[in-house]
Design a protein around this nucleic acid. Structure first.
Length: 876
RNA sequence: GGGCCGUUAGCUCAGUUGGCUAGAGCACUACCUCGACACGGUAGGGGUCACUGGUUCAAGUCCAGUACGGCCCACCA
């Protein structure tokens, strides 16, 4: 054979992105490409504390966005030779799952019920056996409820796994957990018991924020303010001499709970009332006049009624001024039946008009009474003011006194607070300014972490209480299980030394009815994924983790609580890097709501543009920066992936590029390109080391377009042997190195298309089976091949080529048009570089007779061949 | 009220120790089917770098202040 077509191996005639997601995700699964090798030492491991998505929620483009960021880092680290511990978890603990299980199966959790073996729920998919919507809810035990949860979330988990596999996350799917599974319950309970043993967890009967819908206490971190309409009511109290004392309030219905009237100590208007007794309207209760710094003379009439409890300031006043307790709101958010003890019979009779009513109706009743008495001065003045809500709730929070469990978090102790702030300094935040949010939050804490919840579904507080002779629980002496028996459920398990039939009987025991806050378990994801205490060998290879990726809005919850648990349990930080992702914004710059995000489902996007294209968009969002949802960016990503296919096809069509990897690079243009490529590898590596994937992508992409638009055009003719086999061989050697390097640089971002191209020429043996387990580019080797060439040469040559092209474009002629003579003017310095590669430039410009002239700036004059005469077109 | 981030072309964004004529993509205009690519290519128009002052030989970049936008926290009578 003479000069037949070169052996181009697996090279397709028409490369395509179609189906590559399915092909390669299946191949990676079959080959276990991303499996963690636990034989690696800690120094060889890069471990990631993956955020467990809430599987009861829906798939959202936000998932695609932030998980892609983490994946690019994981892939980079893997290519640098690290064993990457990249687990996945499902968050199926907490209220969202509880509600779904209730509606789906027609059940509700009742911890007082005994466990039923082989229980079958009365409904499936919210529909009963008769095919009609199922409304009733059958009470079942907590273990049965958890079983149904496991069953339900299985489907959700499959959908998430499919999305994440299609997206190309290089997760090790062997490292899977769920926050309600047995392992998580064991870790959560063990950590709590150790907190208890060391005095870091304690229980206390105290006023705390209470959601009346869910009827549970909530923590400071779960609050949010919402603007609500309200109204100032001016109430007439009476001074000891019978004169008026007017007080403004937005919550007149709490008047029966009023225990004092407060003013600022420096407020001369009220100073004379020191030691006096004030009489409340309607109920005629005598309350003390008190003074406190928190009272604001500027607000209302400068004096306020203190109620137990209207807001957190009331709690402060009550505690610091040792006031009475006169609670009138019950846990269900309604006024209690019994009037406060201090009320006279007449007052109690009036209170009876409020008893049993909601806050809203109670207010109407009270305002009516005030009006009747003439003690409501003027009309209520409507205002809009912020009101505290549970972030998942839809009614304002009340403050209710109850027994709750807390974990110390520095909200009440300065030393611990300082220690936890200092822990923040041991973590590298990306971007760095996110540490400020951590510090602000910790320094602003005003109480310990309330972890008990009066709900039924979740990890139970693993304690029992002895019942005394009269059947009252002895809360001060909780009975803890042996760690070896964890996880336990005190609603069905029996404490050591007791029999099951002693449950609830005097002299017997009861289980703690509460569960733990979902963050009390999520704060232990490093311990859960690393199998703390279950597998010490694994744990010490991954802990403390290298990286915690998460969104910036949960610094106060997930990030902080994880630091607290690690501080107590391991006396250190849980990870060395925290990488914060931003949010997806609507094109109109609002935070993208879930409903809007669902208009275009993530899978539809992956289908429409290809996973690499969607990843390209995601990876363009800089660390910590909110990013607009932009399908335009996905189109560009798709174009980039296609360009990579075609450029690869060109290079690989030149012949045996695998062999060319070892051939020498001899031409100056080729060396200059490799010199430029070397600086790119340095930049991309530095960016990734700083967790700045977006920068690495941007630099790589910029080079790639120069590579295709300029270098390939400049080298194309020579590569086709226009100047002989040796000059061509140098081009092939440089193309091979550049393609090999670019595939590696793009691999973290575009794992599918890069693997596809890799398979055409590099995946020839087990050592090179997958690009993603091969190595990050070697800048030193490239630098040696570049042989000291000036990377600017490529830019100079590209600029000259652009000018030659312009002469044709402006003449509205084809780029193939020959230039019969041309003059390139440029500075001496640049001409010196250009001279070394002039043959390539002239060939690419189809130019003869190019002269170089010294000048101040680049300009080109070119004479084009005459246009073919248009009047002799052929007529066959 | 305190803090953090941002403001560069119509849009989305780069611009890392201050340094050539401030860049890219999209969109727009014109042209081109050249042996990787029409899911393309080439070239072009478009910017008072939010504003005011300062430091400097030199400021998009550093400093001070202002405005606007976003977020976090605090306040909640």
């Amino acid at each position: 054979m003479s000069t037949g077509a070169p052996d181009t191996g697996n090279l397709p005639k028409k490369p395509s992105l179609d189906g590559i997601e399915a092909t390669w995700s299946a191949a990676w699964q079959a080959d276990d490409t991303y499996a963690f090798d636990r034989g690696a030492t800690r120094a060889e491991v890069f471990s990631i504390d993956t955020p467990p998505p809430t599987v009861s929620g829906s798939l959202h483009v936000g998932h695609v966005f932030s998980y892609t960021h983490t994946d690019t880092i994981a892939r980079y680290q893997r290519m640098t030779g690290k064993q990457v511990f990249y687990p996945m978890g499902w968050d199926d603990n907490g209220l969202p799952t509880e509600r779904r299980v209730q509606n789906y199966f027609g059940v509700r959790c009742d911890p007082s019920m005994p466990y039923t073996e082989g229980f079958e729920p009365p409904a499936e998919g919210g529909v009963g056996p008769d095919g009609k919507a199922f409304k009733q809810q059958v009470p079942i035990s907590r273990p049965n409820f958890i079983e149904l949860c496991d069953r339900l979330v299985e489907e959700d988990e499959k959908a998430f796994e499919h999305l994440f596999r299609t997206l190309g996350l290089s997760v090790d799917w062997h490292q899977l957990y769920a926050t309600i599974d047995e392992r998580s319950r064991r870790v959560s309970q063990r950590a709590f018991l150790r907190n208890l043993a060391r005095g870091e967890a304690y229980q206390q009967e105290a006023p705390s924020l209470w959601d009346v819908t869910f009827q549970t206490a909530v923590a400071q971190a779960e609050l949010e303010d919402r603007e609500r309409p309200g109204a100032y009511h001016t109430l007439r109290f009476r001074r000891p001499d019978g004169s008026d004392l007017l007080i403004d309030t937005t919550r007149p219905e709490l008047l029966p709970a009023c225990v004092a009237v407060v003013a600022h100590p420096d407020d001369e208007r009220y100073r004379p009332l020191e030691g006096a007794t004030i009489t409340t309207p309607v109920f005629g209760v005598e309350v003390p006049m008190v003074f406190h710094e928190l009272a604001d003379p500027e607000k209302g009439t400068g004096t306020a009624m203190i109620c137990t409890f209207g807001d957190t300031t009331d709690v402060t006043w009550w505690r610091e001024l040792n006031l009475d307790t006169r609670a009138v709101l019950g846990r269900n958010g309604r006024f209690v039946d019994e009037a406060p003890e201090v009320f006279t019979d007449a007052a109690a009779e009036r209170y009876a008009q409020m008893a049993g009513k909601t806050v809203f109706s109670g207010r109407e009743a009270l305002v009516a009474m005030l009006t009747d008495d003439g003690d409501l001065i003027g009309d209520p003045r409507p205002i809009t003011h912020p009101v505290k809500f549970f972030e998942k709730g839809d009614k304002p929070l009340e403050i209710v006194t109850s027994r709750q469990w807390y974990i110390r978090n520095g909200g009440r102790e300065a030393d611990l607070n300082a220690a936890l702030v200092a822990r923040g300094g041991e973590i590298a935040f990306h971007p760095d300014y996110m540490r400020t949010r951590y510090t602000n939050w910790v320094e602003g804490l005003n109480g310990d972490w309330l972890i008990s919840r009066q709900r039924f579904f979740g990890v139970p507080i693993p304690l029992w209480y002895r019942l005394d002779g009269s059947g009252e629980p002895v809360f001060d002496e909780p009975i803890a299980p042996d760690e070896a028996t964890l996880p336990i459920d005190p609603s069905t398990d029996v404490p050591p030394g007791f029999d099951a039939d002693q449950r609830g009987k005097a002299g017997g025991f009861i289980g703690d009815p509460d569960i733990m806050d979902t963050w009390a378990t999520s704060s232990l994801t490093p311990q859960i994924a690393g199998r703390w205490e279950d597998d010490a060998d694994l744990f010490e290879r991954v802990y403390p983790y290298d990286m915690r990726p998460q969104a910036h809005d949960i610094i106060r919850t997930w990030l902080f609580s994880t630091v607290v648990r690690a501080h107590f349990e391991h006396d250190g930080v849980p990870w060395t890097h925290a990488a914060l992702s931003g949010w997806i914004l609507d094109p109109d710059r609002k935070k993208m709501s879930k409903s809007k995000g669902n208009v275009v489902t993530p899978l539809d996007l992956l289908e429409k543009y290809g996973s690499d294209a969607v990843r390209y968009w995601a990876a363009s969002g800089r660390p910590g920066t909110d990013t607009a949802f932009d399908e335009g960016q996905m189109k560009i990503g798709r174009r980039l992936a296609i360009k990579l296919l075609n450029a690869s096809k060109f290079a690989l069509g030149m012949g045996d590029l695998r062999a060319a990897l070892d051939a020498p690079v001899t031409e100056d243009l080729d060396k200059a390109m490799l010199a430029r490529l070397t600086t790119l590898v340095d930049d991309a590596t530095a960016a990734f080391e700083a967790f700045d994937y977006a920068r690495a992508l941007e630099r790589t992409e910029t080079f790639f377009w120069t590579f295709t638009d300029d270098y390939i055009e400049l080298v194309k003719n020579r590569a086709y042997e226009s100047r002989g086999p040796e000059a061509a061989a140098s081009a092939h050697a440089a193309l091979a190195r550049a393609l090999d390097t670019l595939l590696r640089l793009f691999a973290p971002f575009l794992p599918f298309v890069t693997e596809e191209v890799w398979s055409w020429w590099r995946a020839v043996d087990d050592d090179h089976r997958s690009l993603h387990t091969s190595s990050w580019p070697d800048a030193a080797a490239l630098r040696a091949d570049a042989d000291g060439a000036d990377p600017a040469t490529l830019a100079v040559a590209g600029a000259a080529l652009t000018e030659l092209r312009r002469s044709k474009t402006e003449a509205k002629r084809s780029l193939r048009t020959a230039i019969t003579s041309a003059t390139i003017t440029d500075t001496d310095e640049r001409l010196a570089l250009l001279r070394t590669v002039l043959a390539d430039v002239a060939e690419a410009g189809v130019a003869d007779g190019v002269e170089l002239v010294s000048g101040e700036t680049l300009s080109v004059e070119a004479n084009l061949e005459p246009e073919a005469t248009t009047d002799d077109h052929e007529q066959a």
